[in-house]
Design a protein around this nucleic acid. Structure first.
Lengths: 349, 349
DNA sequence: TTCCATTTGACAACCGGTTGCCATTCGCGT
DNA sequence: ACGCGAATGGCAACCGGTTGTCAAATGGAA
């Protein structure tokens, strides 16, 4: 007889929060009159057991309000059903959609998302990664400050997918920049622009360099000229600061590394009484939240960031579950597009 | 000698990902020549052991690159060192700072944050909560769709703190609305406004009602009149839709339930050629990211959302660690303030 | 040197599941 | 009615820590 949960001797059940302990498979086993291992099988491998027995167990589980203890399950299996998402800065609007897409994909697969922030610091990021790594099955790294070697080392530990960056030997999800850049250049060409400037972001930014590379290449193909101005801080302030150099560069249109910088340019232009888009066309990248609040509303190259998050999670999951996944294989579905708003217009000439 | 990370002896068992198994206290015990339990004590209760032994063990741990397995630790102790943050909508900019503040507070305390999103659906939220609850020590609930009873039931299971809402019997962190509202009304009064309108959000929104209650009370005290227009969707679209009713209501200033709605009003006003602030002053709530991108830039009542997140986590932690915490006790440090920008001005009269 | 009070650290049980192995039972064909 | 193979479910070990108990070792005092 000896009751299971009640008269536990030494335990004294001095629970932290005074709640009664959650039911376990042992409780269910007792109610259903079977062995705990049978309960485990009934719950995790439907069909393995006699239908009647299985039903009896499931009824008991339901009746007791049973919820499997994830920790207990993770211990022998090594699988936590949790994924880590590590971001340089949660408040950076670029990541909003990434987080949402990732969260959704994870939830759909029955996984939970652990979000950690590195506050733009390499050390903190390393610390955050170390803290998160042991309790997740896989990791999505966004705008990481980690070095290639650190990332590769991590990737040998568990499945890792990098977003918006490429690290040789590590999976990545990067939207296809070419489509959006082509559209943007075509758009500017149509409006008569031939002399462009690129306002580059931080010099270490993989994405800033990638955009710049593609821009020179594609601008050249169209017979347009383009100069790089920067690098500078990828913020509103950064954009504002380089405005003077834009104004004196003689270009009629600028593409900023990101929307924040583009907004900075817009502001500086307004302060200097430079008319956008009449005297200067401005194009951003990312289409972050709020980029249509500005006046003029910002024309920008939109990345499907929610899909980036979603695909990144799917890719990690493919690896975790050892299936030959091809989530988001080929940038086709991850193409970027130009969102034309009011910050671009015909050249003043 | 023996370099740190290199010759880790790992047994190279066929792991899912091919990685060598993480070192355990058993490995350390073997290296240090002691019993595993001794290792456990050396690592978790410094001082309990002979200094020499302790050092030897710690050296071995360092050499092996030991990281405690959180699951294994959580199993006997019941403490996961993880906190759950459940939000209705991660992409709602109002939560950005909450997430950041919460993440920081959690990280500082050595805790990890588990973020889940309910996608504005009560069912999904219940599901998300159920999924998250077993693996966290406490929960912060933001903009929840759960009923009071559900929340109370959850709160009996583990420490719960609700933000931006009050549920009797459950801890909450709500900024002090009065300070900001007083400032806003004083500001409008100074500008000559006497007839105001409040654009209310969803009728079930606790926060929308709370703001409205305070507004009538404080407006009356100043001899101002105020009418409620709404309820409507707390979005840009929602704000735009009620603009017609604002225009015909005869008021000279509106306070919108949140910035998104205020921005909607700004847009509709521009479309209708209504000059803001000359013909109409507009005040928002929250000071979300991007609310200064608009033109005119939005005057808004700012809530210290990062502190809300931070205090909520601290409060949960106080309960989790059973200390008599008083984090954020008294709204003093959580006062709201008016951010005056360009959407408010003297009445046209 | 002897004896006792303290340290120190080993043993083993336990947290709540999972899973390989094996004995039993069942159903079926003949 | 009998024999056989497959279906079923019990047993026990294990995942990696934590912790109560207790014996051994240590040190100090007499």
């Amino acid at each position: 007889m000896s009751e299971t949960g009640d008269a536990v001797p030494g335990a004294a059940t001095a629970r932290p929060h005074g709640a009664r302990p959650a039911p376990t498979i042992y409780d269910i086993a007792q109610v259903a009159g079977v062995n705990p291992s049978t309960v485990s099988r009934a719950l995790s491998k439907p069909g393995r057991l006699n239908a009647k027995t299985e039903k009896r167990i499931q009824d008991a589980a339901k009746q007791l309000g049973y919820r499997a203890n994830p920790m207990a399950r993770a211990l022998p299996t090594g699988r936590t059903h949790t994924l880590g998402l590590i971001l340089a800065d949660i408040t950076n609007p670029v990541f909003f959609d990434v987080v949402r897409g990732a969260e959704r994909a994870a939830a759909n697969a029955g996984y939970t998302l652990l979000v950690a922030e590195s506050q733009e610091s390499g050390e903190r990021e390393a610390a955050a990664t170390e803290r998160v790594a042991p309790s997740v099955d896989g990791i999505v790294l966004g705008a990481t400050r980690l070095g290639d070697d650190q990332i590769r080392a991590l990737a040998e530990t568990k499945p890792v997918v990098v977003i918006n960056r490429a690290v040789s030997g590590v999976d990545d999800i990067v939207p296809d920049l070419a489509t959006g850049i082509d559209e943007a250049l075509d758009h500017l060409a149509e409006l008569g622009h031939t002399a462009l400037a690129y306002l580059s972001g931080p010099s270490q930014s993989w994405m800033s360099r990638a955009r710049w590379q593609l821009l020179i290449e594609r601008a050249a193909a169209r017979g347009m000229t383009i100069v790089e101005i920067g690098p500078s801080s990828p913020t509103i302030e950064g954009g504002r600061e380089v405005f003077a150099r834009v104004a004196t560069s003689g270009v009629t249109a600028v593409l900023a590394y990101n929307d924040l910088m583009a907004i900075g340019v817009l502001r500086a232009a307004r302060e200097q009484k430079v008319d956008v888009p009449r005297s200067l066309s401005v194009v951003g990248f990312d289409d972050i939240f709020g980029s249509d609040f500005t006046s003029p509303a910002l024309t920008t190259v939109r990345s499907p960031l929610d899909l980036v998050g979603e695909f990144a999670v799917q890719r990690v999951l493919d690896r975790v579950e050892a299936r030959e996944g091809t989530a988001g294989e080929g940038g086709a579905t991850l193409s970027t597009t130009l969102v034309v708003r009011d910050s671009t217009g015909p050249t003043g000439k």
